[in-house]
Computed example of a mutant assay.
Amino acid sequence: MNMHHRTNNDPDLRTTLLERLRPMLAPMGTAGWYQHGNRLFSYCSIDRERLKAIELPNPLIGILLRGQKEVWLGDTVHVFEPGTVFVLPGRVRMDVVNIPAEHTPYESLVLEVPSLPPGISPLIGQQSGIGTHGFTIPLDTDLVDALVHAATSIASDAAGDVLKALRLAEVLTLMQPLAAARPLFETSLAEEVAWTIRAAPSEAWTVERLARQLGLGASTLRRRLASEDQSFRKILRVERLKAGRSAIASGASSVAAAEAAGYHSRSHFARRYRENYGTSPKGRRIG
């Protein structure tokens, strides 16, 4: 038996979103990919098409502009109407059907999210997976505003990379609590470990303590990190040295930087710092 999930967003908000994104629509009667900026595209199809067993390399945020879209996972189909905002996961096999309307083509606006911008944390210590929540992002006025600002900024040649990253971060901040947005925030175990240490680099981290925080056994943590060609010791050193370098850049003394990085010995910190960055840590002089 096929299961159908149809979007149930506020139609007024979907209409508002479509009206504000109207300048990004492709000309009628054309088809293909249209690049609007780094990783931002619109895709237009005049004919109905079914893409079988596709597997996206990265998760993406999509907005259906015209026509209808179906996403099939096994026997379950998710149906999207114009104005729907959706998130599709990376590395998950699915069938996608793009369906033009009677007098208009199919068109969607798509933004790939291969990595999270600064300040946006991944899911930490949570089991990944799509689950049963589907792909549809519920809309509110704040998210509609953020999506329009992000699309406009990313598509603009005049907007700098800092502004574009900021606009994307605003969208992701609003989406982060939403179950359907989880694929955007899933990451490798190595990055989970790095983020956990990054939040408190001076703590007395051990592989056992960190594994408990992530809900894993120590041997499981070591094995999974090894499968990613990483190790707890290597990640710990990198994150602590980053913390020390940031402290020095902020004007701290080399002693204070060593403490911020979790090093009890300033000479040990200086030696590791030189090995990693090729220079000695020259912090603010004391006295």
Rank of each mutant, 00 (worst) to 15 (best):
V87G: 04
L139S: 13
I130M: 11
D140M: 11
D145F: 13
I137Q: 12
I137G: 06
A150I: 03
L116P: 12
L147E: 04
P117S: 02
S121Q: 14
E102H: 02
G125H: 12
S128M: 12
V85Y: 04
S156T: 05
G125C: 05
P105Y: 00
I137R: 07
L88C: 09
G74L: 01
S108M: 09
T152K: 09
T84I: 03
I120G: 01
V144T: 13
S153Q: 09
V87P: 01
A151F: 01
A150P: 05
P89N: 03
T152E: 03
L60H: 07
D142T: 08
D161C: 02
L147A: 10
V148K: 13
S153N: 05
S153Y: 06
L111V: 07
V113I: 15
D161V: 09
Q127P: 02
A159E: 14
S156G: 08
H103G: 11
P105F: 05
T84F: 07
D145V: 08
T76V: 00
H103I: 01
L139Y: 04
P100D: 10
V110L: 15
G131C: 07
H78W: 11
P105L: 07
P59F: 03
H78V: 08
P57A: 11
E112N: 07
H103C: 06
H78G: 03
V113N: 03
P89Q: 02
G125N: 07
E107M: 06
A151H: 09
M94N: 08
T132I: 08
W72G: 00
L109I: 08
I120F: 12
M94V: 04
I154T: 04
V96K: 07
V96P: 04
L111G: 09
P57D: 09
G90V: 13
L123I: 12
G67M: 14
F135K: 02
H133A: 10
Q126Y: 04
I99V: 15
T76S: 12
L143K: 11
H149A: 15
P100Q: 02
D161R: 13
V110M: 06
G134W: 05
D140V: 10
